[in-house]
């Protein structure tokens, strides 16, 4: 994990966040947050987060979005959209979480103990390679690099799924897998590089 040490770096990160959010559909609604806490109270994993979703917006207001990225908050979001559909100010909070995850990955600001980014990476790797997610491949890579203990824990279930034909060993490659690669290359070429 890289660390933001200077005020200028923090300010830059904050500015990128604001710019991205404002360009998202309905993104500017973040400005009308009442800090009512309906999001945090509705979050099924909020109790695991260093700071709840409400505090994400508080940090945005305070110009301290780096405070959020230091913790595990965004990596505990399951994308259940409870906060989004309940928000009285119509703020698409789940989309804000995605934006923060993207920033964390882009700027290498991932806390050491967060495992979700690795899974995200292996998922994308699989899709980039085959055009579809090969669950078995993604799982084995994740276990190999992040959590060996998962093997025995999931062993029995894995065997049962395998026996039922629900865990194929080989991947299906789509014909247009080059197109997925091209899309990725194109999007990458459009992105602003990290300074």
């Amino acid at each position: 994990m890289a660390e933001l040490t200077t005020t200028a770096q923090k300010k830059h990160l904050h500015e990128v966040f604001c710019k991205d959010v404002m360009s998202m559909p309905e993104g500017s609604k973040i400005k009308q947050c009442q800090q009512c806490g309906a999001c945090s109270g509705s979050c099924p994993t909020g109790y695991l987060m260093d700071r709840g979703p409400r505090e994400v917006i508080a940090a945005f207001r305070a110009g301290m979005i780096d405070e959020i990225l230091k913790g595990n908050t965004i990596w505990m979001c399951t994308s259940c959209y409870s906060c989004t559909v309940r928000c009285p100010a119509d703020i698409r909070i789940t989309d804000l979480m995605y934006e923060l995850k993207r920033l964390a990955i882009k700027y290498d600001l991932i806390p050491r103990d967060a495992k979700a980014p690795a899974l995200t990476k292996y998922f994308i790797d699989s899709v980039q390679k085959h055009g579809r997610n090969h669950e078995t491949e993604m799982l084995s890579k994740f276990m190999a690099t992040k959590d060996w203990s998962l093997g025995p824990k999931f062993g029995v279930m894995g065997m049962k799924l395998f026996a039922a034909g629900r865990m194929p060993l080989t991947a299906t490659d789509i014909k247009g897998k080059d197109e997925i690669r091209k899309l990725a290359e194109y999007v990458e070429s459009k992105e602003v590089a990290v300074p």
Binding site: Y98, K101, L119, V127, G131
Partner: peptide, 18 residues
């Protein structure tokens, strides 16, 4: 025909436009 992965939560967590 020849559908691909929807992108799921993973792609949103990494690349918005992609």
């Amino acid at each position: 025909d020849d559908w691909n992965c929807c992108g799921a939560t993973s792609y949103f967590s990494a690349r918005e436009l992609l």
